[in-house]
Simulated scan of single mutants.
Amino acid sequence: MSLDPLIPMNAIITKNSELLSSEIDNEIVMMNVETGKYYGMNSIGSEIWRLLDEPKELKDIHASLLSNFKVEKATCEIEVQSYLKHLLQENLILITNH
């Protein structure tokens, strides 16, 4: 059994520029033009997506979420790691390390 490596806190997270996205009722919907898949994001996923309007370090995403939502630090880190890994698997974001 192999463990999924963690995304480093200083990694830069960037939106895939090939996506079409729009905001409807404060939630983000998008389409991957390459695959034809549609995606809908809940309120927290939408907030993360908005934070990525400009490339951000993972630590800055955590800091923003911790200041805007009532969530424990450890829970935030685990949930954001999982969410970003899913977005990466779907080719919705790019991750670069310093």
Results as ranks from 00 to 15, higher is better:
G36L: 07
N42L: 03
S64F: 10
E47L: 05
Y38M: 11
H62T: 02
L65G: 05
S64P: 00
I93W: 11
K70A: 05
N97Y: 15
M1N: 01
D4V: 05
S64D: 03
L94G: 05
E90L: 12
S43K: 10
K37P: 00
T14M: 08
K85N: 15
I13C: 03
E90C: 02
V33P: 00
G45P: 03
E27D: 14
K56A: 08
L3T: 02
E34T: 01
R50K: 12
C76T: 10
S21K: 05
H62W: 14
K73E: 12
L51F: 06
H62M: 05
G36N: 04
A11E: 06
K70C: 00
L19C: 13
P55T: 11
E18W: 04
I44P: 01
D60A: 10
Y83H: 05
S67V: 14
I12V: 15
T96H: 11
L65I: 12
N16S: 13
L20M: 11
H62N: 04
I61Y: 04
I78A: 03
I48S: 03
A63I: 02
I13S: 04
G36C: 04
M31C: 02
K73N: 13
L20K: 14
E72N: 10
S2G: 01
V33D: 00
E34I: 00
V29F: 12
P5F: 07
E27T: 15
